[in-house]
């Protein structure tokens, strides 16, 4: 499978351009689902999609180790790229940098310092930063607002993942579930992953999208193993 084919089947391609084909001006996006439905896989897909389209990515993993984060990429690439995996893994390695932090060590100043280091040392110039494992709690609004500001200042696209809970039915007016229901205004796009029917498919629902790239509601059905758009 070539990079172009891969990009074509990548679920997040539809979010990277607006309906009229122009680039989307998005600062912060959020992927939310119950545990185990594949938030990390989706973030990795967003990162891969960006790399294939020529951008560089920083993957921030909170409370996880580096090898585990790397394994996500390698596994997904092997699943989808088959024989060409080695070449693609190499390309991804060159255009992606993984940073792991402990929960308490992650903040805007820290991220900003690290990103500036990367740019200054000419190591990588990220256009997209995916943040996996950020803990959404009552007091996280300020941190997120700070990060949104950082995204604007550094011209970045920031994507987060969040875990929702079956027994917590709080939702924002826009329909964003807890624990992100009180901070949904800080995100331009919110995607909810839900099992579809008997669980043989996953559906991506755009709960909110202010970029105009996609209409709210169910966007796609995905293969739960590869996270590629289901064919047929």
């Amino acid at each position: 499978m070539t990079n172009t084919e891969l990009a074509g089947r990548n679920p997040l391609k539809i979010f990277s351009t607006a309906a009229d084909g122009s680039p989307v001006d998005r600062r912060m996006g959020l992927v939310i689902s119950r545990a185990g439905l594949g938030k990390t896989a989706l973030l990795v897909q967003i990162a891969l999609n960006s790399i294939i389209s020529g951008k560089q990515v920083v993957h921030v993993s909170i409370n996880q180790n580096l090898d585990k984060a790397r394994a996500w990429y390698d596994d997904i690439i092997r699943d989808v790229a088959g024989k060409d995996a080695t070449e693609l893994i190499d390309k991804v390695n060159r255009n992606r940098l993984i940073m792991t932090f402990k929960e308490t060590g992650f903040s805007r100043p820290k991220l900003e310092e690290r990103l500036n280091d990367l740019v200054y040392q000419n190591i990588i110039r990220p256009a997209v930063v995916v943040v996996d494992g950020f803990i959404f709690h009552d007091a996280c609004r300020d941190i997120l607002a700070d990060l949104r500001e950082l995204a604007a200042a550094m011209d970045l696209n920031l994507w987060f993942s969040a875990v929702s809970h079956r027994d917590d039915d709080r939702r924002s007016a826009a329909g964003v579930p807890a624990p992100c229901h009180e901070v949904d205004d800080l995100f331009d796009t919110v995607i909810l992953i839900e099992p579809e029917g008997d669980g043989s498919k996953l559906s991506l629902n755009a709960v909110k999208d202010e970029t105009g790239s996609v209409k709210p509601g169910k966007v796609l059905s995905l293969d739960p193993t590869t996270y590629l758009v289901m064919e047929g």
Binding site: L66, L97, I98, T100, F101, G105, K110, L118, N122
Partner: peptide, 19 residues
């Protein structure tokens, strides 16, 4: 550290920060 590795044709794979 990253700069020194980069200068040596290194490909930085990632960083882990703790305490």
């Amino acid at each position: 550290i990253m700069g020194s590795l980069n200068q040596r044709r290194g490909m930085i794979l990632g960083t882990s920060e703790e305490n």
